[in-house]
Amino acid sequence: MSKRNAAIFASGTGSNFEAIMEAGDLSCDIVLLICDKPKATVIQKAEKYQVPTFVFNPKDYGSKEEYEKVLVEKLKEANISWIFLAGYMRIVGSVLLQAYEGRIVNIHPSLLPDFPGKDAIDQAYHAGVKTTGVTVHYIDSGIDTGPIIAQEKVEVEENETLESLEEKIHHVEHQLYPRVIREIVK
Score class of each variant (00 low, 15 high):
T132P: 01
G12R: 00
E77A: 13
G102Q: 06
E18V: 08
L111Q: 10
A78D: 02
A10I: 07
I121N: 03
V55K: 03
G12M: 05
Q98N: 12
I30A: 03
H170F: 12
S2L: 15
L96I: 13
V92T: 11
P52L: 08
I80Y: 10
K45S: 02
V42P: 00
G102S: 04
V156N: 08
I169R: 00
G12D: 07
T145P: 05
N5S: 05
Y49M: 02
T131G: 07
T13V: 15
S94G: 11
H126F: 11
G146D: 00
F84M: 10
D144N: 01
H126T: 07
V172Y: 06
R182M: 00
S15L: 04
I104D: 05
K48L: 07
I149E: 01
F17V: 07
I30L: 07
Q151C: 02
L111I: 15
R103E: 11
A127I: 06
K186C: 12
D122N: 14
N16Y: 04
I169S: 04
L112W: 12
I169C: 02
S11Q: 08
F84T: 13
P58I: 05
D122T: 14
I91V: 11
K69D: 13
H108A: 13
K45T: 07
I143L: 05
F115D: 06
I121C: 12
L96M: 10
V72Q: 07
S15M: 03
D122V: 14
E173Q: 04
V154Y: 05
A124F: 01
G146S: 01
W82D: 12
I149P: 04
I121F: 14
K64V: 09
S63V: 07
K153I: 14
S110V: 15
E101K: 15
F17R: 06
K64E: 14
R90S: 15
D144G: 02
L97S: 09
Y67F: 09
E65Q: 12
A120N: 13
A150W: 11
V70M: 15
F17Q: 06
F84R: 08
D140R: 02
P178L: 03
E73N: 14
N79G: 11
H108W: 13
E163H: 13
G146F: 06
M21I: 07
Q50F: 14
F17K: 08
S27A: 12
A46E: 04
F54C: 12
L97N: 11
Q50K: 08
L97R: 11
H174C: 01
D114R: 15
D144I: 01
Q123N: 07
H137C: 00
L85W: 08
E47P: 08
I181N: 00
A19R: 11
V55L: 00
L71Y: 03
K76M: 14
L26W: 07
D140V: 01
V180M: 08
A127F: 14
